[in-house]
Design a protein around this nucleic acid. Structure first.
Lengths: 209, 209
DNA sequence: CACAGTTATAACACTCAGTGCCATAAATGG
DNA sequence: CCATTTATGGCACTGAGTGTTATAACTGTG
């Protein structure tokens, strides 16, 4: 939603005014490289702008916050949780359906893994960069919440829906970060394993309170 | 850890140099009131400093980041998860022990609820304020992780420990925010109910993958 | 080609968060 | 009175983020 608008490359629409000089995604990649080399705090927006060949002001137009350079410019990692949830098998349990949806939505192509990994490692090193992912995660949580509420027949604003949503969301993001830190499996497999283990861990405890 | 150092009021230690003129907690309360009245973004550190009767520079000495005014100055809400975990009954399951620990650590006195509620609502309204709680939550997660790893006989850096820790942490914080948004129960009861429902929800699903 | 409409760019100036430096004030102990 | 310790506040600086505005580059039309 808040991400870049570089939707199609095979765009037949005959654009109107002055064309974009430097593609935003390119600026984000340059920024990512600079952050890796010198450290996030040691690279100013001015630096990124210069390296990308645009003015500071233009850079801010595409990336309103510096943190956005880390994630919002990620053409990869734009998951389709919505579609995956819509295609959930009706007979599966809610948790199983969520696992399947994540598995589908996180099925990145291998080339994209490395950029995503670097982004996640940056976020891990600079916790305040969580701001960069918050928007996307909030959107995902919204979808999760609606899905859970409907499947379980619960009120959208009930305690259980909120708690379940946040727990699942945190668990899957945790698994992604874990994967970024060196897991050899794919992101999809890491999240799938994480939710499976959560299920096992909670399911193994004494049934009710 | 990173919080204020106003440990004791009955402090017999004969302090040395120049005394503190304005107590930091007081400045934080004034700031909280201003944030409620005018909105977080519409109140500058300069404003808070003036209202609290100190210089901008001094304010920054006690609250290195503006967000710290929201949470770090909270003498209430300093939970003792560590102690509560240490007193966990050995025969209880891990999750049950965690629930009991939260119930104990979150047993605020009623007077403190209102300030905490206002802080949490501010954080909910301005997600970037999550920065303010992150430090404390990170410390708590560290304790949770060690506890879970030991009780379950797992490696501290295993996927399951990370995921379980993050899920439980997110769930309890979620319950706290839920409580702040109008739940009539106490924070301790909200978190307890949340973890119980999580247990039930996961326990009810098909056992393994 | 000239012209109007559209969109991107960059320069300028501004607010505010956050930091380093340092002179000075206010306490204590000898 | 003097040395030490600690808190204060002023000054200046960097960097993020924003509003404004003039201008450049493109498209389509007559």
């Amino acid at each position: 939603m808040t991400a870049t608008q570089a939707s199609e490359s095979s765009d037949a629409a005959p654009r109107r005014g002055r064309p974009v000089e430097v593609q935003p995604e390119q600026a984000a990649l340059i920024a990512l490289r600079l952050f890796d080399e010198r450290g996030y705090d040691e690279v100013s927006m001015e630096d990124v702008a210069r390296a990308a060949g645009m003015s500071r002001r233009s850079l801010f137009r595409y990336f309103p916050r510096k943190a956005d350079l880390v994630w919002s410019g990620a053409a990869e990692a734009q998951t389709d949780i919505r579609g995956a949830l819509a295609r959930a098998r009706p007979e599966a349990s809610t948790i199983d359906a969520l696992r399947a949806a994540y598995a589908t939505a996180l099925d990145f192509s291998e080339d994209q893994w490395e950029a995503t990994r670097r982004r996640l490692l940056l976020i891990q090193r600079h916790p305040s960069l969580y701001d960069a992912v918050r928007g996307q995660l909030d959107d995902q949580r919204e979808l999760l919440a609606s899905f859970i509420a409907e499947r379980e027949g619960l009120a959208r604003e009930s305690l259980l829906v909120h708690v379940l949503t946040d727990a699942v969301s945190a668990a899957s993001f945790s698994a992604l970060v874990w994967w970024a830190s060196g897991d050899e499996r794919s992101p999809a497999e890491a999240v799938n394993a994480a939710l499976a283990e959560l299920q096992k861990a909670f399911g193994a405890t004494s049934p009710i309170n």
